[in-house]
């Protein structure tokens, strides 16, 4: 526990009750399955294990109807490895959508665990579709990886990792707090998932979800987003895919950055809204002494590049969820801006 900030007082209070031996707070039983009474309760469960999403203490073995999935393009998260699971209650299915996130029914849970080879699992975030809408809860693992506790204010952990490029880095990993969950997952006044869009899951997974009884309404073929990492798609497509998954959850008309008028979603086709030739609005020193979000042909004069290449609070974009610079992402976006025509 040494690496965690001290637990918030109310979680400690609940933990105390668990120590007193109240059965409801015990760990998962053998053969556990997701517990809808916990999933749909008004309040977060004190421990991740309480939801019954896993059959083992270390949360590596998903329970029945809890299915692993991957995204074609993930958000950059300080090089953390992310393990994603989806739970859809028995008797109901998600509905296919081509443009937006799959419509997951009430009782569904999206589970995302963050880990590094050097640290093991650090945190598990839940997005739960309650009767009144989606909510996000952060859970933080203890050092022994035997339990993950609800941590509404998140946590900080000093870690050392080796990046995929072989660089050794020491930095403070930040588990976002519960409000920060909403900042990224905001859609108007509501919270929505970001990742599980059909185009970002791909036809193989969509077919598998349908086969497993989790999803209905999916066509046999639909347009997928190109993989950024695979590098086969055009530069324009990969750059737009990068902006879509890394930026557009806030930079959209009903997102946390709506007031900027900078909208970076895959479907955006207005050049000014994409930042091309657009002046900064409320960037402050985040503008980096530059006066265009994207100066076509000139990444070194583009605020977008400047903020992606910064790790400094008040300058760095995205504001949340990263402390490191996504060097590959900066390179991709710089290449893209370099070849944009300067009319």
């Amino acid at each position: 526990m040494a690496w965690l900030t001290d637990l918030p007082w109310q979680v400690s209070a609940l933990g105390l009750v668990c120590l007193l031996g109240l059965g409801a707070c015990a760990g998962p039983a053998q053969g556990a399955k997701p517990d809808l009474s916990v999933i749909l309760a008004d309040a977060p469960a004190p421990m991740l294990a309480d939801y019954g999403l896993f059959t083992d203490i270390a949360a590596t073995k998903p329970a029945a109807r809890v299915r692993a999935y991957d995204l074609i393009n993930p958000l950059f998260s300080d090089h953390a490895s992310k393990k994603r699971l989806v739970f859809v209650p028995e008797g109901v299915r998600a509905q296919y959508s081509q443009t937006g996130v799959l419509s997951l029914p009430v009782g569904s849970v999206l589970v995302k665990s963050f880990e590094y080879a050097e640290t093991g699992r650090i945190e598990t975030r839940l997005l739960i579709h309650k009767s009144a809408g989606w909510v996000g809860y952060p859970y933080v693992w203890n050092e022994d990886h035997t339990e993950a506790r609800y941590a509404p204010i998140g946590a900080k952990r000093d870690i050392e990792i080796t990046t995929p490029a072989g660089q050794a880095l020491a930095f403070q990993y930040a588990v976002p707090n519960q409000n920060q969950c909403k900042t990224c997952h905001q859609s108007g006044n509501a919270i929505t998932p970001i990742g599980p869009k059909a185009r970002n899951l791909g036809s193989d997974q969509i077919a598998a979800w349908t086969e497993a009884g989790l999803l209905s309404g999916a066509p046999e073929a639909f347009a997928q987003i190109p993989s950024i990492a695979a590098g086969q798609a055009s530069l324009d497509a990969r750059a737009r895919a990068y902006l879509d998954i890394n930026c557009a959850h806030c930079h959209k008309s009903d997102g946390a950055a709506s007031n900027s008028g900078l909208w970076l979603g895959w479907d955006e086709d207005e050049l000014v809204k994409l930042g091309i030739g657009k002046h900064p609005t409320a960037a402050g020193r985040g503008a980096g002494q530059l006066n265009r979000i994207i100066a076509p042909g000139a990444p070194d004069r583009s605020i977008l590049s400047f903020r992606m290449a910064s790790a400094e609070a008040g300058v760095a974009m995205p504001e949340l969820g990263r402390r490191l610079i996504d060097e590959n992402g900066v390179t991709l976006i710089n290449q893209w801006i370099s070849q944009l025509p300067n009319d």
Partner: peptide, 24 residues
């Protein structure tokens, strides 16, 4: 009943309810 409402109140019955998973 929400847990967060209860968290501010230190009494045995309340804390029992917080873990009982019942909403009654």
């Amino acid at each position: 009943m929400t847990v967060k409402k209860l968290l501010f109140v230190m009494s045995a019955s309340v804390l029992l309810a917080a873990c009982s998973r019942t909403e009654t």
